[in-house]
Design a protein around this nucleic acid. Structure first.
Lengths: 348, 348
DNA sequence: GATTAGCACTCTTTTTTGTTGAGTGCTAAT
DNA sequence: ATTAGCACTCAACAAAAAAGAGTGCTAATC
């Protein structure tokens, strides 16, 4: 990749810049005027021929201008992009509104991001992989059912109704069970609850061991339940703004992906595992981990909420997306989210 | 509307039927072959001219076939539709999977309905307007916070974290509060909790009256929270299957409506209030309560879960939708939903 | 009097044909 | 090494022509 001398680099940059703006193949004349190095279109043409041979740009058909290839975009993102002067101001106001329910905050964030960038966006609720169990509370709902409330670190509350079929429990017994469960389990990380703990618990529970096991099932379930984690999306219809994605076939596929959300999980997992210095990932075209988006670019960022809770924000748009702007937006948002939930709100 | 003699009716029906299938304007020759009354195309043409004058059909342009007008569709739905022989079988298997979380059930239902009908679908979680309070459970989370779990009839569980800033509570006090709250409130419908009750409660709570009031706020909030009710959608991209809706302008609008969900509330409220014998509503074109859908038809049904909880299922498609099939599907689903949650599941 | 065959006419849709213009690649001159 | 010049390609647009589907009306038929 180091085949590029300075002039080629400059020309490539100019081509990509122009294409990002217009979305139309760019010809040699355009570049000849655009750049400061005064060169005739003919010279540019020669250089462009070289760049094409090296795989950075592509000709949709003979006698059209050139457009960047995936490799070209990649080079641009990696080497040519300039840090943008932020207009930090604007975003701040919108987002910060702590004490809100997480769900609402996330919905606002994606929406804001979507209108801000004009691309489709997604965000996942933070996952609490190593979340600790704060406490469990059983209570009688009626003759046949008890309610198990499970509170995890970070005040995530889960609940589950458990049927008690045969064995009737009076309130005293429930009290005992509560005590038992809490003394044994409190403060444990979820993956610390091993077979030994479970066995011991059951033994102590005596005749109610079955209930204990159901409760533990419920705990396990509430966690795995969030494996298929919640994803919020916004601005899916923004793709109609980019003709290269708007034909009904592609559009339908993409929008379905957003509707089903299932596919989007691919983006999340990939990001969570495959960390990088900035915490921002860029997938260009076929690099995308999700097949459906091979004609798009995907930019994702991981945000972190202390206590080991992580979530992912993502932007999906055409390959000719405004990478600077997008990455800048993500960066801002990331740092804001990092802040918001960390400390509990100060006042009601 | 009684201007229609039998022959005209037959012809109109044939026109609509054919148009529902093909989506193309239908000409006199087609009908001449289609119907059992053997008539030449010329005769049909005369009748069609009449039908047009009466407003049941419309010509997109001179020398094209006719298509049904909104009024035509309306007439069809009201008078011409034939009850369909159900193939009940198929649907049953899919849906019934009780003990599931409501959310999951609803998601399955919309999805099933969408693939079954090839239209866009929506469903609202049931609202429990007159839902009764089953019980409240407070428990200590940590020094500063307590968790209020609120269980409503139908085992809907809500929870809310409450900050207790100044006043520290020991476990005994919490126990007392629990007792107090439950003896006073249990079994009450939500709108029965009036000022008198509240005042009495606070008085009895003594120094903890502030907490009581916060709990009551939480109760109120958990209810109002569901005023902006949850709506699940599926198959929004099905609209691409119908050319008359698939152009990017219209499609974008519609899909945005599905994404935002805000607009869909219009369909719900209207249905909930404006009851009919079958419980199934049909809005054709401009009849729709939601502006965005004036080029579509919308069919909604209200399902009921005993205990006064109601929800809405809806199907949105092109005006030439297969009304029989859609209404039949809704009917089946409605009755199934009516059943599912009513009695608690029998076995684990 | 209702039905129908026949025909001219209207409009959309599709196909064909030509035209334009942006852009290239190559060669020869600078 | 750069550039002017030129022939060539090809998508995009537009205009023209042809095809087809369907109508409305008139005059013949049952």
């Amino acid at each position: 990749m180091e085949h590029l001398d300075e002039r080629k680099t400059k020309i490539l940059k100019a081509i990509i810049r122009t294409y990002l703006e217009t979305g139309e193949p760019v010809g040699s004349r355009t570049i000849s005027k655009y750049t400061d190095l005064n060169l005739s279109s003919a010279t540019i043409r020669n250089e462009m021929a070289d760049l094409e041979e090296l795989g950075y740009i592509v000709q949709p058909h003979t006698s059209a201008g050139r457009i960047p290839s995936d490799q070209g975009y990649r080079f641009y993102v990696d080497n040519l992009m300039e840090e943008k002067e932020r207009e930090v101001s604007e975003m701040k106001e919108f987002v910060i509104e702590r004490t809100e329910k997480m769900e609402r905050v996330l919905k606002n964030v994606v929406k804001l991001l979507a209108t801000n960038t004009n691309y489709a966006t997604m965000i996942t609720a933070p996952q609490y992989r190593q979340g600790k169990l704060k406490f469990i509370q059983l209570s009688q709902v009626d003759a046949e059912q008890i309610l198990a409330v499970i509170v995890l670190a970070g005040n995530i509350v889960k609940n589950k109704i458990i049927r008690t079929d045969l064995e009737a429990l009076d309130s005293e017994q429930i009290l005992k069970l509560n005590l038992l469960l809490n003394t044994s389990l409190n403060g444990l990380a979820l993956d610390q609850i091993n077979l030994a703990t479970i066995a011991r618990l059951k033994e102590q529970a005596g005749i109610h061991s079955e209930i204990v096991s159901k409760v533990l099932d419920a705990v396990a379930e509430s966690i795995s339940e969030d494996e298929d984690l919640e994803i919020y999306t916004s601005g899916a219809t923004n793709i109609f703004k980019y003709p290269e994605l708007a034909d009904s076939g592609r559009a339908s596929e993409l929008i379905t992906a957003f509707e089903e959300k299932q596919q989007l999980i691919g983006l999340v997992n990939d990001t969570l595992s495959d960390e990088e210095s900035t915490g921002i990932q860029v997938y260009i075209g076929s690099e995308s981990p999700v097949q459906t988006m091979k004609d798009c670019s995907v930019v994702t960022a991981t945000y972190e909420l202390g206590e080991g809770m992580k979530g992912t924000i993502g932007i999906i748009g055409p390959k000719r997306m405004d990478y600077e702007n997008v990455m800048d937006n993500l960066k801002t948002l990331k740092s804001q989210l990092d802040g918001i939930f960390k400390k509990p709100p100060e006042k009601d």
